[in-house]
Amino acid sequence: MSQPALVRVTVYVAVDSVTAFEVFTEEIDAWYLRGPHHFFDPARAVAIRFEPGVGGRLLEVYNEATGEGREMARVTVWEPGARLVLRDTRDTEIDVTFEARGDETKVTLEHRGLERLPAAEAESHARLGGRVLIAWFSDYMRERTSA
């Protein structure tokens, strides 16, 4: 069975939308799970971080002192508290929106362009780029707000 072209996952976190955006971007190194399949070069990766603003990179960091690393994705939309869009190195797009819902924030991650990937890669790419990524963020937020 072919893979879907788009996967959208929604979670609710118990903070305001500005905080949710800040945690998603500024604290990604705290919630992005280390693992052999989660970096281009897991042996060298020491951190992951966003360069804020449009044109900034999502960077797999190899050297904290020099800033050397490898680009994982490029920021195309940066609207603190509202929306973040990334285009990754496989030319798929990750669109994250943050919407206030009472005391919570609805965080929706839409991963588009999966039809451009070879079928054998689409499932694993969609899983890491969408479902797993937002699950890690959601789990971290739950621990962070209950601490």
């Binding site: 879907p4 072209a5 788009l6 996967v7 959208r8 929604t10």
Partner: peptide
């Protein structure tokens, strides 16, 4: 509440 949606191209 919606939690997952997948679509074809």
């Amino acid at each position: 509440r919606e939690r997952l949606v997948s679509k074809d191209d």
